[in-house]
């Protein structure tokens, strides 16, 4: 049987439903209050000239720059480039960490062999690897993807391993009683059972790797939205820098609500 984890509500519907449940519109509006206060205060400070607009442009200007930038191909490509580096890094980590974590979660001996080394590697500051990666793989996207992969590996490994370890013994007995083959064992027991923890791991990895990708782009000038922000500051087009930051924020919210939110809604049906 084909598994159908993504059937059901269309993601944007989840976004709308989660943002505007009619019964507590009041609460939702209330949560916008601090944001409104900050933005209007900021607007006033900038517009009145108390803060120099060249250093801190008013939100209205940022918004205008953002809308105009969003219609230029180069800006959109920058954002997409960062996002694809991030996604590829996480996917790379997922394909490396998940099988290892499942193996370690199932076999005590494998776990006690490899997990201490992984813990040790995970406790090192990951970003320290960046200069080496850039020396080996050049100062382009490849180094950024590999760096992202390294950073995403650990949260995915540890959450997935925990997911496998928390599967009750009886579930294994059920699968043995009914003669599960090796493939069915993974596909029909292990994978569905670890979905909740795997989502947590991916979410942790996603938040963490965004920071790492931006750091790489800003510090090491790998092309992407981070380097765009950096260049905008250097060219003293601070409104463009803010537009870049806003774009990242909006993209993160969309991924959080549409992708992770959607998966979590699906899991909540049974978990």
């Amino acid at each position: 049987m084909r598994r159908r984890p993504l059937r059901g509500q269309f993601p944007t519907k989840v976004l709308l439903v989660r943002l505007t449940p009619l019964k507590d519109v009041k609460d939702r509006l209330l949560c916008l209050l601090p944001l409104t206060v900050i933005l209007s205060g900021w607007e006033l400070l900038s517009a009145s000239g108390i803060v120099r607009a060249e250093l801190v442009p008013p939100p209205s200007k940022v918004l205008m720059t953002l809308t105009s930038q969003l219609s230029t191909a180069s800006f959109v490509l920058m954002v997409l480039r960062s996002f694809s580096n991030l996604t590829l890094g996480i996917l790379l980590a997922l394909f490396m960490a998940a099988p290892l974590a499942i193996w370690a979660g199932l076999k005590r001996q494998v776990d006690s062999t490899i997990t201490p080394s992984i813990m040790l590697a995970g406790s090192l500051p990951d970003l320290a690897l960046l200069p080496l990666l850039m020396m080996w793989f050049g100062e382009g996207s490849l180094a950024a993807i590999l760096m992202a992969g390294v950073c995403a590996f650990f949260p995915i490994y540890f959450t997935t391993r925990e997911g496998v370890r928390s599967i009750p013994t009886e579930y294994f007995q059920v699968s043995t009683i009914f003669h599960s083959g090796r493939f069915d064992f993974v596909q029909k027991l292990i994978l569905p059972a670890i979905v909740p923890q795997a989502i947590t791991g991916l979410r942790l990895a996603f938040d963490f790797v965004w920071e790492v990708i931006l750091a790489i782009e800003i510090i090491a000038r790998v092309a992407g939205i981070g380097s765009f922000i950096n260049m905008s500051v250097e060219r003293q087009t601070v409104d463009a820098a803010f537009a870049g930051i806003f774009a990242i924020g909006i993209l993160s919210i969309i991924v959080d609500r549409c992708f992770f939110g959607f998966l979590e809604e699906r899991v909540k049906r049974w978990a």
């Binding site: 009750p168 009886e170 579930y171 007995q173 569905p192 059972a193 979905v195």
Partner: peptide, 8 residues
């Protein structure tokens, strides 16, 4: 413990 698979 019944041991039903909760995702099914």
């Amino acid at each position: 413990s019944c041991a039903l698979f909760p995702w099914r």
